[in-house]
Structure formats: C-alpha cells, structure tokens
Design a protein around this nucleic acid. Structure first.
Lengths: 255, 255
DNA sequence: GAGTGGTCTAGACCACTCC
DNA sequence: GAGTGGTCTAGACCACTCA
C-alpha cells in the first residue's frame, strides 16, 4: 500500500489535502492500525523490514516513524525481539503505573489496596460531559474508589467514563481485577489510555471526603483533576482524586 | 578530533573504559563543550557538517546526537538558521517559563510581579546542604520572593543557591532584573538550569506564610519542593514554593 | 543461524532563511 | 545563491534473542 511512490515530495504529495513528511504519514497509518486494534496491547507489530515493504518506503523511514511512537509510549522497542504495542498490563511497574505520580516520601513503592465504593450508570454532569466531549446528560459510568496503603486511606478517586465505551463495567469486575485500572480498561473494553492532562490544587477536606480518608475536616488535600485520552486525542476518562499527602507526595520531573 | 576512526566499533572502541555508540560519544562531547561555555545560551553551535568534520563522523551521526540534545531541551533547532543553545532568556514565553507549571484556571498567563523579601548569605540547613551536595553548614545564598498577580499574592518562594556559584547576587540585582530568575542566573552567573525534580504536597498555611500570602492561617496551600540541576546532573538550586491555588493550578501532562 | 532492532555511512534532494 | 536543518534512500555491519 504505497503512500507516495513519487520521489519528489512536492510533485505528487502536495496535491494531497495535507502535506506531511513520509515518516509522519507512516506514523499516522500505524496509529490508525493501532486504534483499529490490528495489533493488540502487548503483541508485536511487524518488523521494520516488513512494514517498509508493506508501505513501499525504506526501512529508515519506518524507523523514524516507529522511533517517534516509541518516544510517545505507544510502542515499546526490544532489541532482538521486536517492537510491541505498549500496555498497562506490563510486567515492569514503571510501565504498569506510568500515570501514577504519587510516591511515598521515603522507601520504595508499596502495593496499595483498592476498594470500590460505587459503580453506577448515571448522567454526566455538565462539566464532566464537556470534558468528555459528550452531550450534557449523556450516560456515563461513575466509579468511586478508595486507595489505601497498609490500611491507611491515601486517595479517594471519583471517575467518570463514557457509558458507550465501558458497557458492562460493574463493581464485581472492578473488585476481582488485579493490577491497574487502565490494564482492565484496555483488556476488557479495548480502550487504551495514551495521555493525560492533570490540574493540581490544594483544597480543604470536605466532611464526607474527610471521613472516608480518615482525616479531620478542613485538612489540606491534594486535588488532582485528570482527563485521559486514548488514540487521536479522544477524551475517555475524567478523574478527580483527593490525596492525603502527609507521607506521600506527587512527583514530577521538569525538562 | 576523531572519536573512533576505526569502522568496526568493537575492535577499537571496546577497549575504551566505557563503550558507547558513536552518537552518544558525540553527544557527551557536545554537552562537555556546552558546560565549558564554548557556546553561550542563545548562540548558534557550528553546523552539522562542520561538527561532522570536526569529530570525523558522518552528518547522520552528529544529527542523531543533536536530535537527542534538542529533545532534552539543551539545544533548539531552527530550520534554515542553525542550531542554538537553549536559553531561559528566550523570546517565546513557553521557553522562558519552561519550568513554571502554575497557570490560571481560565484565560491566558498574566504577567506577575516579583518582590524580593530577603537575599542573604547564610549557612545551608542540613537538608538543603544534602540536596545541593554541599557539606552541612556550607555557605549558601538564601532568597525569599513573593510572586503576585494583579496585586494578589500567589506564590511565596524560598530559594537556596550555592554561594560559590552565585557570588555577588544581591537584592538590588534581583529587583532590577526583568524576566525569569533562571534567565538572570544563566546570564549573570553562567549557571544554566537544565532539569528539575519537584515534590508536591498539600499543606496548611502556617501563620507567617499565611500573612504574607494574605490567606487565613490553616488555609490549604500547594507546597512545591524543587531541586534544579545544571549540566551533568549537578544540583544548583533548592526551592520551596507555597502556592495559593484558588484561581491557579499546577498543570502537568502525563505520557 | 536466522531474525530483530541499533548504529553508521554516503549521498541526494527538499524547505527554509538570509543576503 | 549559499548555507542551514529536514527528509529519504540503500546498504553495511553490529548486538541481542531465541530456537
């Protein structure tokens, strides 16, 4: 399936609606196939040489496309083995908890316990609907989860998901699943989280939240508002987390 | 100045103390020259062809080294013009305020007013000394700065810098300088911030801090503990910021 | 040993910038 | 038009993995 057989880029390609370098076009085609589920999370994609043959370009061009996708964490390269679709169900914890920035002040990451306090179908509040690019009042699944470590509550998450994409998500399935939520989402619902935006604030704990987190009302909490996106910048999760940061902190690296 | 004239990498290079791909070696040499100030912030580095000739490698190899340095924000490529040393004094605000993640909840970034409440030479507290890789009690410069927007206090920063690197930093120089602090640091003291680690918590405002930020004691504040590094992972700044997040939030993007 | 990604080269041509 | 970074190719060889 040639993308542009002509060697002089402008001659053939500038007539296209959008002119892009070959490797960007290849990249876009790869994302399209990922989105369509041609290769599933954890599976290998075809080798560079095969992709080069398939797209009628040189290996170097495929390479550059794959390099960028690997840099964006959509693909994972493993020398000698192949290139794999990134997954939240991976073995390595850094891949598994890629989006978890809350870490203990000292010592290593400790396994957390999840308990699900709610999981029900409801109508999207206006702000949530807007962030999910849904019409106001459209069906969403609302989940409330308490994360604890060593019995001490750490995070209270309120999560909204488009009901259309997560049909069949119940408390039972949530409770029985081991590992990160995003692993469940991609394995059971075919929705893979690629990117997220977070807005972070300090707030005073309201009464009900304070009770669930076992802190005094008015205690300072870290409020993390997240919107997660799947392929092609499609928003698929709104999450509001209240975190107790007495022994944990949010870690971030600036470049 | 050849890095490895031999074409078979292992034959010659594996005898070296560390074996690295050619482009990593080039990259390291470039960082070394940046660190030594051979090319100053904002200035162009030699063209790819010239570097290739100088290091006795192909343009492609230089290119890969420069690509990585550009990805790490040490260099900035501009097509048709050249490759430049990144700077905090740049025109574009996104480059200028690269490390500022605090943004207004709505609307565009508004210019802030800095006032410097303290700037004095003192001994490093134990924790600061450790983070700066100094001996406990070694001389540091302590700066306290209040950031306000439209007259309303927004951030109170406490900053510690190794006195050895920032000799001559005074309240006067701070007050008369326009633009980001890191611009002053790189222009006047030759220390360029490359990377930073941040630890973020929610805390209750203590009395003195609350007064300076014009909030009630006990109000929730975002506490941002930052350690900044210059070339070669050398820590050169410890900063503790207390932020009022009623109309601003800390923005972060996860990949 | 076959197959995969990783490095390196040499050369062609393109797009952009500035004189 | 000269010089710069940006794209693309073709081919060689290397390092790693696994059967």
């Amino acid at each position: 399936m040639p993308v542009a057989t002509d060697r002089s880029p402008n001659a053939e390609r500038q007539r296209d609606a959008v002119f892009l370098p070959l490797y960007k076009q290849i990249k876009s085609l790869l994302v399209q196939r990922l989105q369509q589920g041609e290769w599933k999370p954890g599976e290998p994609i075809p080798s560079e040489l095969e992709l080069a043959a398939r797209f009628q370009v040189s290996q170097g061009t495929v390479r550059k496309a794959v390099d960028e996708l690997a840099a964006e964490n959509l693909l994972v390269r493993r020398q000698g083995k192949g290139t794999f679709v990134a997954t939240h169900q991976d073995q390595e914890p850094r891949a598994q908890y890629r989006f978890l920035r809350l870490v203990p002040d000292d010592g290593e990451a400790v396994p957390t316990q999840s308990s699900f306090l709610a999981c029900r179908r409801t109508r999207a509040p206006a702000d949530v609907a807007q962030q999910l690019a849904l019409r106001s009042g459209e069906a969403v699944i609302y989940v409330r989860r308490l994360l604890a470590v060593g019995g001490a509550p750490l995070v209270l998450d309120d999560i909204w998901l488009p009901a259309a994409l997560f049909r069949g998500l119940t408390s039972e399935r949530l409770a029985e699943y081991r590992g990160p939520l995003y692993g469940l989402f991609e394995a059971e619902f075919g929705t893979r989280m690629i990117r997220a935006d977070e807005r972070i604030r300090a707030v005073a704990a309201a009464g009900d939240v304070a009770a669930l987190l076992a802190v005094a009302p008015g205690s300072p909490l870290l409020l993390v508002d997240r919107v997660s996106y799947t392929y092609r910048e499609q928003p698929v999760e709104v999450r509001r987390g209240c975190c107790v940061t007495t022994h944990y902190h949010y870690h971030n690296e600036l470049f």
